[in-house]
Amino acid sequence: MRCCRPALLTAPLLLTACSGWQSSLDPQGPQADFLAGLFWVFTAALTAVWLLTMAALIVALLRRQSARTEPLELDPRAERGMARAVGAAAALTLLVIVALTVVSYGAQRALFSGGEAPLTLQVKGHQWWWEVTYEDPLPSRQFTTANEIHVPVGQPVNIKLKSADVIHSFWVPNLAGKMDAIPGRENRLVLQASKEGVFRGQCAEFCGWQHAHMGITVVAHSLEDFARWRESQISAAEPPDDPVRKRGMQIFLSKPCVMCHQIRGTPAAGKVAPDLTHIGSRLHIAAGTLPNGRGNLAAWIVDAQGIKPGAHMPLIKLEAEEVEPLARYLEGLK
């Protein structure tokens, strides 16, 4: 028992990685299905090849050799047999490689052949957060949000990937494969969720100090819920009605916040940091670093550098009594 304990302990750990909100082995959409299928086909084929090779090796090692009297003498029968075995193994190797190439090519074709998607998003990687713009032929119905993508279930979504600074990589393992976001270039990716749920994505290309805290949340809704969410995001922020939140808005507009952030419906129109128009409706703040809530918002405003060192959110010097109204104001931006 003692010998196996580490193995027994690690097995469940390894298995937990196979399901959950950030796993490519738990596919939740057709693109991820293709990739997971590809993974299992490769794993099965390569396991079979490995086992066969090992078996042949063990047989060769264990087989008793008859002692030869003359070292240079050749046995033509044995020679022919060996030549046949090597030839068959080479042919089989070629066959396996060609077959896997064809399977891989087929899956790639399926992944990138996506036709017209009804919904197109621009996702722009920044150090260290994601800017998301929902495109629409009507400019008044376009809107920008950050670090959270909502998609309708069962509809392909076309994603245009860009970068504002360095190379990032967009990866939502449950829904699609990785795709790089390269400065000065636009890459395309199609993803589709086949059932409702919340999935986590992660920047998959090292992009600097806070690369590990550059997450993105994908929320898949039914079509009606998605339409409702979209309408609410298009609208500008509602002006606060209670005095504490009004004070919070004043603080927001008179402090350095306005230099970088935008809240539609107020004079704050900065474009270099996440759009906060509906920050209260998001699940996380600081690119998946903290769950959203008044406490975490306040912590982030007061000490962003302690939570995410190196992030471009500077230290804002606020008086003690200014923090709560500001956090309440942001929390209420649903």
Binding site: D303, P309, L315, K317, E319
Partner: peptide, 11 residues
């Protein structure tokens, strides 16, 4: 040398 957290004292 990266100093991310300057003194938090206001003013």
């Amino acid at each position: 040398d990266r100093e991310f957290r300057p003194s938090p004292v206001a003013g």
